[in-house]
Design a protein around this nucleic acid. Sequence first.
DNA 1: CAATCTTTCCCATGATGTGGGATGCCCTTC
DNA 2: GAAGGGCATCCCACATCATGGGAAAGATTG
Lengths: 277, 277
Amino acid sequence: MTTDARTHAAGAPPGAQAVTRALRLLHCFRDNTGELTASQLARRMELSVSTAHRLARTLVAAGFLEQDEHSARYRLGPSVAELGQLSLHQRGMHRALPELDALARVTGTTADLAIRGGAHAVILVGGSVNAASGLGLRRPLHSTALGKVLLAWARPGEQELDALPPLQAHTDRTIIGLAELRAELDRVRQAGHALNDGESAYGVRTAAVPVLDAAGHAHAALAVRSTPDVITDDRLGWFVARAHACARALEVLLLPPDQRHSAADAVNPGAPAGPAS
Amino acid sequence: MTTDARTHAAGAPPGAQAVTRALRLLHCFRDNTGELTASQLARRMELSVSTAHRLARTLVAAGFLEQDEHSARYRLGPSVAELGQLSLHQRGMHRALPELDALARVTGTTADLAIRGGAHAVILVGGSVNAASGLGLRRPLHSTALGKVLLAWARPGEQELDALPPLQAHTDRTIIGLAELRAELDRVRQAGHALNDGESAYGVRTAAVPVLDAAGHAHAALAVRSTPDVITDDRLGWFVARAHACARALEVLLLPPDQRHSAADAVNPGAPAGPAS
DNA sequence: CAATCTTTCCCATGATGTGGGATGCCCTTC
DNA sequence: GAAGGGCATCCCACATCATGGGAAAGATTG
């Protein structure tokens, strides 16, 4: 029989049930305070206590979880932090930190850098005037400036809006219609930046711009975030300009020379099928 | 076919072969440049290509790996970076960064903070006069100042030196005898700090001190690292003193009030119904 | 153009993970 | 103080699920 049945739709985990569960177990620690008991994990994942316990134990053995000696509760382990730092370095994100700090200081805002992680924008590095920003946080794609940028310049495989989970409203300004969102993304592409004016939370205004690669897709998204009385309408253009300048700098810092956007279109005016050497 | 995979007796992970393999697969990315093909992974892990491929695919689905669209090679994914940042925050490590930066600037050295990760010291945060330090790096326990500190004040369950892998020599100064190491750890405990003078690499001198918790065990280890002509014999005491001061500051920043070492025995109002023997 | 090394899919086999249940601990409640 | 519930942990029979060989299709090299 001819192999045409593309059964690997977005949610088909082929041949790795135990692994999928173990990774889902790790993801449980996203939402929570930091420590979970084995039975809490079991309930949260709708698994038997035995299974959750066994998976957790295996994760502990590999250093991905840690178990408190007294409370016997689990928390994220050294391997997670280790690989995380490694991943950040491999992405060159540590080089972005000074730039973000500078941007935050100059603009008096919080400056965040995020990448696409499935159906979310994942904030990886942040510079802020007030220390604590939302590092390691997952934000929705449809209701944040970062997310809209990542969607507007998404890679071909990740453009389909229908694949997104149901659009949830966080304020009465949140875009919850797919058609509306599509129109908004068109505006974003047109303008070159995205805004979030109280769509994820009241009293928060964010402007985001993309860090583009050679193919014109978003390698990352950069946002400045503050309150409407800091990012006022008449100064908005300036904030966006500063962000764009920073994004161009990040292009150089984050991407290898042959994958940069601004450099590429100068060198490569109109050669479509040319395999980049 | 009888699998000889029992050779890893170091903890007999019961009932989670697939998970263990998947996590080992993630750890493959520690050593490497950043990107690996499916068959490279298979060879490195001594697995069939099928299995490695399936595991990698599952990891991609969960966001723990990413697959390059062109080269089809795998690299660490967004989830890893995300959870890593989250873990750092849950450990309060972001609060340590300013202190480390200050220490590095004052002393003109590289200042690193590490925790115990199995049989290694894992450097999680670093401040440096010259940008790139070894973030996310794993260092041996027996041949580094950080490692010796972590061993000297290890928790009861992690003290046994016999459980360590064979002690490898990196220079002719590296301690490779267990008895010698035990004596060295006694000296370290006595002195309150550890030194590494060319034991892991020539021309590198490091001094490390512990960040202690209420039980007197090492929550983390703090090191200043430079060359012997910066950390000279007569100035060594000063470097150690600066490190100790920083460690005490980190105690406050990293540990909840009731688990601090220095504060705990001095400040204990309203005696709880605790271990009143 | 052939040789080689990829990635990816399919499938029969049995090794492997699964969850129910039992045990003992600790803490809360009556 | 006794009773109760919640928890971590271990054991075991069952059958589900991961395993690796094999093959097809593509990519790369000489």
